[in-house]
Design a protein around this nucleic acid. Structure first.
Lengths: 146, 146
DNA sequence: CTAAATAGTTAAGCGGGCTAAATTATATAG
DNA sequence: CTATATAATTTAGCCCGCTTAACTATTTAG
């Protein structure tokens, strides 16, 4: 097994483990909140990219503007997002997360945080330093991949 | 910032990055395949846990057996799973992935693999070793957390 | 053997989420 | 100014996924 293959294999295992932990929680969370895949994708996108137009969001999801508009209307009703007119082009509506929308996303991350703290507690100081250093390298390089 | 907080923060960043990469792909993949959240959850569960009964799968998703039964019927029609009678209790149906079902899951993982190889290519041998060692520690300790 | 419990399916009904097509409002090209 | 293009919404219609309730088949308790 080449050094690359070994690297990929180990990372794969780690990501599987993370995904398995995240996926069930994620699916449950979505169901309880009454959020669809599209809604979740939209909230994540807004959190990451900032406010966006309706068509942009639809393209990102791969659905029509009509579908997007309807889905956004439901998110507005749930007070998770807000619409406002783009002053530079009054045809476009700027969609942004409300405070409540941000909170909902943060809650989704909280149990991960708990888990990470539990993990930190059973690692030695030396191990934590080693992992932090290695992870920083990956973050740096991953950003280069765009 | 304590050593723990720094560790958690860096890992958080890394997981965010992974999740962002995975989530969009995942949502697109699901939409293209016509798979719902429940179907995906079921396929993952079967892949990880092996064949299961209808009620088990429903409990896992948090929906009724009726809903599960209908959803499974659609997965059977797509030839992603198969039903068979449990010989020890003929009331229960054993649900298992078909070969096609396994393939579908593997395809979902393939683009991640590609990305990891790209990442490997821009890391030095020393860095790869460092990351592999650190990740192995996390995998080991994470398993202890159950 | 009978009664109750359990596993799964089926049917009816409700609402979600998608599309295509029509509509409204605004911006841009000639 | 007029014609065309673009951004978003509304409407009608379809299918999906969920629930409850009724039903079938099988197992278990007494």
């Amino acid at each position: 097994m080449s050094a690359n293959d070994q690297f990929v294999s180990v990372l794969h295992q780690w990501i599987d483990l993370l995904m398995h932990r995240s996926m069930r929680r994620f699916i449950h969370y979505a169901r309880e909140s009454g959020l669809s895949l599209s809604m979740i994708g939209t909230l994540f996108h807004l959190n990451r990219m900032g406010s966006s137009g309706v068509t942009d969001l639809g393209d990102h999801l791969g659905v029509t503007s009509a579908a997007t508009s309807q889905m956004l209307e439901r998110l507005v009703q749930q007070k998770l997002i807000q619409r406002s007119e783009d002053p530079t082009d009054r045809r476009v509506k700027q969609i942004a997360l409300t405070d409540k929308g941000c909170q909902v996303l943060e809650e989704g991350l909280r149990s991960r945080q708990t888990w990470l703290h539990n993990l930190a507690d059973i690692l030695s100081e030396k191990e934590k330093e080693q992992i932090t250093a290695a992870t920083n390298i990956m973050i740096e390089k991953a950003k280069q991949l765009g």
